[in-house]
Design a protein around this nucleic acid. Structure first.
Ligand SMILES: [Mg+2]
Length: 379
DNA sequence: GCGACAG
DNA sequence: ATCTTGTCGC
């Protein structure tokens, strides 16, 4: 298992990500038929997430194309590199998927992705993107329809209906099992559509989804559980927690939770130079007109925050956590659904308390206590 | 402007 | 994707 961070220069906004797609889309190769089904190897890639733990796990499983037996498999774990935005899935999945592919000791052959390739608003879905970045032949098999409408294919396995963008066929809804919901096949890089459909049928001897994605899906989920367990061995328990109860009462007693959270963060950050992420959270909290941008600030803070196992100063880690909570509370107050955990604000008081106990500076400690407004009863 | 929207 | 028990159907 390899570990990866967010790549240098990785897009941080939707605008940047769309620009990257427009830049790279010209490099897709669409005039190669690609490897014939049943020859060489086929590898499935897939990703599983735990957004709360900021964890992504990817798997690559190489199958013998003729026998469909597993001949190699790798996993990689990384941080969340981008939020899920329809049309920008690749920016969320690719860094960790690439790490898993790079860890392979043998050539992957044709790569089968869990999602779309050409059948994408800008003709540059996950499979296309991965193909351009790796040079490997790629195709996409999606479980759900996306942008393009299609007729319902006949009930027999092998039947299909075109995914049409105007008059252009960008993919096919393909029935892989009799009477079962179709999958959605589109080409990625260096593979033709007929060939992609043939591969999909060759990979679905028993179930709706290709064996490649079934195996990669199972493996990356296992890898995610393993990574989550390694990070917090005690996760999963829910015990009575007096600190949490106190945090709840402090938070819910506030007239203006967002401004309060901002003042607590300001006190905890102390005077002097502050990391830009903290600064952003402070500016967010200070201006009600910005609260609806809480989600973006949350993502900014999350990207900049040190990993729990990193040997960064404890206070710095907690400060970033506090900034995340400020952004969450702001979003929950003014932002559009979906909301963060409704109880996010409950953690602010206890977190500030812990931070205060860790600071050597007496005045800062007092300022934090002051900003919070009350202090937990001694245990 | 509103809703839909791969994983 | 993820949260989760039972339940409807072959
Ligand atoms: Mg997937």
């Amino acid at each position: 298992m390899t570990t990866v961070g967010v790549p240098e220069g990785w897009p941080a906004t939707e605008e940047e990500a769309r620009a990257v797609q427009d830049e790279l889309r010209g490099r897709v190769v669409l005039d190669e038929p690609g490897p014939p089904p049943g020859t060489g190897t086929v590898t499935g890639v897939d990703v599983a997430y735990d957004d709360d733990l900021d964890l992504v796990a990817a798997a690559a499983v190489v199958l013998d194309a003729a026998t469909r037996e597993v001949v190699a498999e790798t996993t990689a774990v990384g941080r969340i590199s981008f939020p899920y935005v329809p049309g920008l899935l690749a920016f969320r999945e690719i860094p960790t998927v690439r790490a898993a592919l790079d860890a392979l000791e043998r050539e992957p052959g044709l790569v089968v992705c869990d999602g779309y390739g050409l059948a994408h608003p800008r003709r540059f879905g996950l499979a296309s993107h991965l193909g351009v970045l790796t040079g490997l032949p790629t195709m996409g098999v999606a479980k759900n329809p996306f942008t393009f409408t299609h007729a319902d294919p006949a009930p027999a396995r092998g039947s299909w209906a075109a995914l049409l963008a105007g008059t252009e066929e960008v993919g096919r809804a393909l029935r892989t099992r009799d009477g079962v919901k179709p999958v959605y096949v589109s080409v990625g890089h260096r593979v033709g559509l007929d060939n992609a459909v043939a591969h999909t049928l060759a990979l679905t001897p028993a179930y709706r989804l290709p064996e490649t994605t079934r195996r990669a899906d199972a493996l990356c989920r296992r890898a995610l559980k393993e990574a989550a367990r390694a990070r917090s061995p005690l996760a999963g328990r829910a015990a009575a927690d007096p600190d949490r109860d106190w945090g709840r009462s402090v938070y819910e007693g506030r007239r203006d939770p967002v401004a309060w959270a901002g003042r607590v963060l300001a006190a905890a950050a102390g005077p002097g130079p502050r990391p830009p992420e903290i600064e952003a959270a402070l500016e967010l909290a200070a201006d009600p007109l910005r609260w609806s941008r809480g989600r973006e600030v949350f993502e900014l803070v999350r990207r900049g925050s040190p990993l729990p196992e990193e040997r960064a100063p404890r206070t710095r880690l907690l400060l970033f956590r506090l900034a995340e909570l400020v952004a969450k509370v702001a979003h929950n107050t003014a932002g559009p659904a979906p909301f963060f955990d409704h109880h996010a604000g409950w953690a602010i008081g206890p977190l500030a308390h812990r931070l205060a106990l860790l600071t050597d500076d007496g005045p800062t400690r007092d300022r934090i206590a002051n900003a919070v407004g009350e202090w937990p009863p001694p245990a």
